[in-house]
């Protein structure tokens, strides 16, 4: 067989035969796999944060000790009319006594301690109230009223935010390292092929011809690496979700990736291949200009 069939996939420059060229697709596969895993962690943390945001916010309102029952009633009525408030439940004196018993003992009928009156306020799911403003308005009704803000944001939320940020930085770092490695491999490959480049130029090849071949090579390696890396990462993620679902893994309540999340993850290999190809093109331009 002669002619086009045996020639279509051959490059004039023997990049595929070089060690560096051979490893390019595996470098890109590793970068893709790690970047997708990191991005998946960021997506999971983000999903958990969104779920947390949709949970009803419950805060405790403290009225100064000695607040009259009528004032408590007025506050409950006011909260009932306030936008976003689902329930306002005063904590009964008995319940309060039970709450403080471990620390203060049995308060009995005539306790000398001034215990504040508490109201549990539950907001609508997903509604985030401006507690500072609400507190100011409540103080007009009962001076000294305060919200317990420590209960507003559980410690897991901060951890999830940090995890999301760390995972995003890691994903960017893996993509960047794949891009930088591609540029370095292409530069090294061209340096090793100076004689061939000279020969092709002697036959009348313009730099665009050489660049086209090299970019084509990088694109092919990139696509093969990206597919392999994404497939590996996908399997690891599915296995992680399957295994993780059987255990209680804090701070995650659930390990779930929606179809749209998977779609988002496919953007990682695509971005990596595009950036790697662009970096290769720039590296080739510079190397050829230097060799001219």
């Amino acid at each position: 067989m002669t002619g086009p069939e045996m020639s279509e996939l051959e490059l004039d420059l023997p990049l595929a035969e070089q060690g560096t060229g051979r490893f390019l697709q595996w470098i890109l596969a590793a970068a893709t796999c790690l970047a997708v895993l990191a991005a998946a962690l960021a997506v999971l943390a983000d999903a958990e944060l969104r779920r947390a945001a949709m949970r009803p916010m419950v805060v405790t309102l403290a009225l100064p000790a000695g607040t009259a029952a009528a004032e408590v009633e007025a506050v409950v009525r006011f909260l009932g009319r306030t936008e976003g408030v689902a329930f306002a439940d005063p904590v009964s004196e008995e319940e309060l006594a039970q709450l403080v018993e471990p620390w203060l003992g049995d308060l009995g009928e005539e306790s000398p301690l001034a215990i504040p009156r508490l109201i549990d306020v539950t907001f609508d799911p997903g509604f985030r109230a401006d507690l500072r403003e609400l507190e100011a308005r409540l103080r007009e009704l009962v001076p000294g009223t305060t919200f317990d803000r420590t209960a507003v944001e559980p410690p897991e939320t901060g951890m999830l935010r940090n995890l999301r940020l760390f995972a995003l930085i890691a994903a960017v770092a893996f993509v960047s390292s794949g891009v930088v490695a591609t540029a370095a491999v292409v530069r090294a490959g061209l340096r090793a092929q100076t004689d061939t480049v000279d020969l092709l130029r002697l036959m009348g090849a313009v730099d665009r011809y050489l660049e086209g071949q090299l970019v084509d090579h990088v694109l092919r390696c990139g696509l093969r690496g990206a597919v392999a890396g994404f497939a590996t990462a996908g399997m690891l993620i599915l296995a992680g979700i399957e295994i993780g679902g059987r255990f209680d893994i804090r701070p995650f309540d659930a390990l779930v990736l929606r179809p749209v999340d998977w779609l988002l993850l496919t953007a990682v290999p695509i971005l990596l291949v595009l950036l790697a190809t662009l970096a290769a093109r720039l590296a080739i331009d510079r190397s050829l200009a230097r060799a001219a």
């Binding site: 002669t2 002619g3 045996m6 020639s7 051959e10 004039d12 023997p14 595929a16 035969e17 004689d195 061939t196 020969l199 092709l200 036959m203 009348g204």
Partner: peptide, 15 residues
């Protein structure tokens, strides 16, 4: 100055 990774056919076809 032949390219060792290409066949005879591809070397001749290069120009």
């Amino acid at each position: 100055r032949l390219l060792g990774h290409l066949s005879v056919f591809d070397n001749v076809a290069l120009p």
